[in-house]
Design a binder for these strands. Structure first.
Lengths: 195, 195
DNA sequence: CGCGACGTTGATTTGCCTCAACGATTGTGG
DNA sequence: CCACAATCGTTGAGGCAAATCAACGTCGCG
């Protein structure tokens, strides 16, 4: 049976995974179908799971008191998503995590993951790698937010993640890149003129 | 002997550490004194170590091609600092890490850390925790950069890390918070008037 | 003492936002 | 299957937060 092969492949890119390890992981994976516009995390509730995206597109975002939305993260196939801050501290979330398309995710509950890690260092190692890469990624984003103009941020993001740019509404993209939808629209237009 | 007690205490806040574990860690810690203005990481060279700050203040920063400096991170006592992206991928750094005061750091070499983790899951676990917390921290910073005005960012940072604000030159603080030194100066002045 | 690094202040400019109006597309209930 | 609403993107006019530029004061240090 080739259930769960895509997440196994992801893990194998970081550590060696035996058949027994696969079994132990499978035991805690919960497959879940979600419909477009459905929330898998909501402010006020503890984010109990990390979700691996098997199919679909998601975003995590924050709603500021003035009503403005700020997108923290997108996730498409082969990415993880959650309100990570809520997840690791098991405190109430402040983010929404919303499905942007009908999709399929594999969820792992916090306590189950921690037990798995405690029992088997392979998983401890894997999640260390993931967290380290995520941190490095976040630092690069901070740097790009500090040093680049709105147009540069869009150009770079579009080069790195064209797939996300295609699949996601522009106003969400704008709220990820730190600009208004109107300005992103004008930016794209003038970038097109150049090329 | 109470050598290395502060870093042990840091670790104990996350995992249980036996006397043998302490010994294994001590074996890879390299004590190093640094003088103000000294660089412990430079662009082009692989960042071979993670550095735990025993005494002193440091910052990691990037120099944009237009000459502008952007501070990614500060570190004072009981924090780690490095060019983390360079460290985990063992590729050439793009950041400077500079001592802002005379100081003392405990350095851990990449390969030694990885071996330690492979041999003892306690350390795997500890570094997972650290990476997870770092990631959550970075995400909060991204959020605050997206949603807050310059004055709000300063006010919050000053409340959370008054110690860093006191010990660090203002132009570096400005380059961390994403504004010009001139604007930070004006901002502080007007915040003082209010209170 | 004198020089260089740092902070301050004011005048001016600009990148991006706000607000408003208008198409285009999608989806939904009758 | 169409009408209508809702959602999303575009465009333009005007405004504001923060940057830039320039000049000056101050302090620590060689």
């Amino acid at each position: 049976m080739n259930e769960n092969q895509t997440i196994f492949a992801n893990i194998r890119r970081h550590v060696d995974l035996s058949a027994e390890d696969e079994g132990a992981l499978s035991a805690i994976l919960m497959k879940r179908r979600v419909k477009k516009r459905q929330f898998i995390v909501q402010p006020g509730f503890v984010c109990a799971h990390q979700s691996y995206v098997e199919k679909g597109a998601f975003r995590a975002y924050f709603i500021h008191k003035n009503g403005a939305e700020h997108t923290i993260q997108f996730a498409i196939e082969d990415w993880f998503i959650s309100d990570f801050n809520s997840y690791i501290s098991q405190t109430p979330a402040s983010l929404f995590v919303e499905a942007l398309e009908d999709g399929l995710i594999m969820q792992m509950e916090y306590n189950a993951v921690e037990m798995l890690c405690a029992q088997n260092p392979i998983f401890e190692r894997y999640f260390r790698m993931i967290a380290q890469k995520s941190f490095a990624f976040a630092q690069r984003r901070i740097l790009s937010n500090l040093g680049q103009t709105a147009a540069e941020r869009f150009r770079d993001f579009n080069k790195l993640y064209p797939e996300i740019v295609r699949r996601v509404p522009q106003y969400m993209l704008a709220s990820y890149l730190g600009m208004t939808p109107e300005f992103l629209s004008k930016t794209r237009k003038s970038l097109n003129r150049e090329s």
